[in-house]
């Protein structure tokens, strides 16, 4: 049991199959089923990529925060690894969300960046905060302390997200038309279904990537431990297989 490399890869194969299948279905729906929006035309299709990316990234940050709480309460290094990987993948997704958002803004408003869109601005601030997770984490040398401080960071940042959305939303002038309000409020059924599919496939992708990253990290950690065991053949290898976050 101690050196079971399949622990983190359990369910990885079905997930790896389900994700491309879900994406193929979503893309087919996006391009052949969902109607062309009358206002923005073909450009509006980016909605099915941009919004799921952003929503999954935000949920991933919250999941990272929950794992961080579990880590502090149970003192199990595995939860720290979960929290790290969740935040890591979410930062990448958030980066994608920002880029697609910028493209959408350029297409529909003519500018690469719009300060009047509170959701986009809040998202940028959240992204900037989570981007400091890496320099923060790796500036702390002691491993246990690093894990603990990173958890405190993840919890603090998780509490910060709703507060930030509130403050930015309030500061925005309410003159600007709200894209998501119209998009989500009066969404016709075919668009709603497509949107639902794209969210599900994006969440699947996130889960698959998290699992891949976790099993890669645990394999790396095992390799390191085995090498160490080869060098010093007296002691038995450690039974803990928390993935190494390095």
């Amino acid at each position: 049991m101690a050196l079971d490399p399949s622990m983190y890869s359990k369910g990885l194969r079905p997930l790896s199959i389900a994700t491309p299948v879900a994406f193929a279905i979503t893309l087919a729906l996006v391009f052949f089923y969902a109607p062309i929006e009358s206002d923005q035309g073909f450009l509006q299709k980016i909605f099915y990529l941009h919004v799921p990316l952003a929503i999954v990234a935000l949920c991933g940050f919250i999941v990272g925060g929950i794992f961080a709480i579990l880590h502090l309460r149970r003192d199990d290094p595995r939860y720290d690894a979960y929290s790290y990987v969740a935040i890591h993948i979410s930062v990448i997704f958030a980066c994608g969300g920002l880029i697609t958002g910028s493209i959408w803004a350029k297409g529909s408003w003519g500018h690469w960046w719009v300060w009047n869109e509170p959701t986009l601005v809040s998202f940028l601030i959240v992204f900037l905060l989570y981007a400091t997770y890496y320099p923060f984490r790796y500036a702390i040398e002691d491993r246990q302390r690093q894990a603990r401080y990173a958890s405190v960071f993840a919890i603090t940042a998780g509490a910060f997200v709703p507060l930030n959305f509130l403050a930015v939303r309030m500061s925005a002038s309410l003159v600007h038309p709200r894209v998501f309000a119209t998009a989500e409020g009066g969404l016709p059924g075919s668009m709603k279904l497509t949107f639902l599919c794209s969210i599900i496939s994006m969440a699947l992708l996130w889960t698959t990537l998290v699992k891949f990253e976790l099993s890669a990290k645990s394999a790396q950690g095992q390799l390191k431990r085995l090498r160490r065991a080869l060098d010093a053949p007296t002691g038995p290898p450690s039974s803990r297989i928390a993935p190494e976050v390095h």
């Binding site: 905060l129 923060f136 403050a167």
Partner: peptide, 9 residues
């Protein structure tokens, strides 16, 4: 680095 984004709100 960490405090500035945190105090934006």
């Amino acid at each position: 680095l960490v405090l500035l984004p945190l105090v934006v709100p």
